[in-house]
Amino acid sequence: MNEFELLRNITIGQYLPVDSYLHRLDPRAKILAAILVIAAVTFTPSLAGNACLLAGGLALVWLGRIPLAYALRGLLPAVPILVFLAVMQLVFFGRNYDPTSPVVFQWRWIVVTGAVLKLVVVSAARFLELLLVTSVFTLSTKTTDLTLGIESLLRPFQRLRVPAHELALVVTIAVRFVPTLALEAERLMKAQASRGARLGGSRWRFISRVRRSLPILVPLVTYALRRGEELIVAMEARAYTGGAGRTAYTVLASRPGDWLAVGAAAVFLAAMLLAPFPA
């Protein structure tokens, strides 16, 4: 129960060190499979389809041996956004969105139709599915594996002048600094609160939380630039001169079983696209 613990409520981006099928999966296979599943989420507009996807997401949580309560808690920070989106959709879509749909509720100028109701449920479900898939992905993938996977998958495109190594390094450094910057943001907010910045009130007052985080942006960017500048000097001091001539500490080796996951994800996507879900 703490208004400042930014990092601690975010499960996305944190690796959970347990041993599971998903944890052992080759990161390249996992990235491809995740892309396929996300595609399935994107192209499934029906209620029944989204129910299947939610079930699928929970199955992934189970497959990754992630404590269910922990995975669900990671969804909590998204709830205010979901509520906000739902209210906006309910209030502003009105009859314009699919005028043929029957009206279920009307109060002054606010009109809620069956189609809008369905839209609200489906978009909330999609949001949760995406969050589940990405957090299962990050909880089961070390960032080193993620960047090695990205670099390896991009390597065939190097001939098209895609800078695979540089992109992977950029992702690595970004990921490496996320927790550092989150902690710094926490320190800045505490310092400002200590000097009389207004309290945000209850934790559900989303707007006041946003307003309170604005004044930390400038010092946070300053901090990031300063650390970045020092990092460049430190990298230079360690003889970094770009990707040419470098060797690699870790080399990925996949087993045939890893590609089964990609196959399974592809079958899942096909099933979602072809299944005769009621519209």
């Binding site: 070390k142 960032t143 080193t144 960047t147 390094l169 690595t172 450094i173 990921v175 490496r176 550092t180 300063r226 650390r227 970045g228 020092e230 990092l231 430190a234 990298m235 360690r238």
Partner: peptide, 8 residues
Amino acid sequence: DSQMVATV
């Protein structure tokens, strides 16, 4: 905090 390049 500004000398580590990698994530582990």
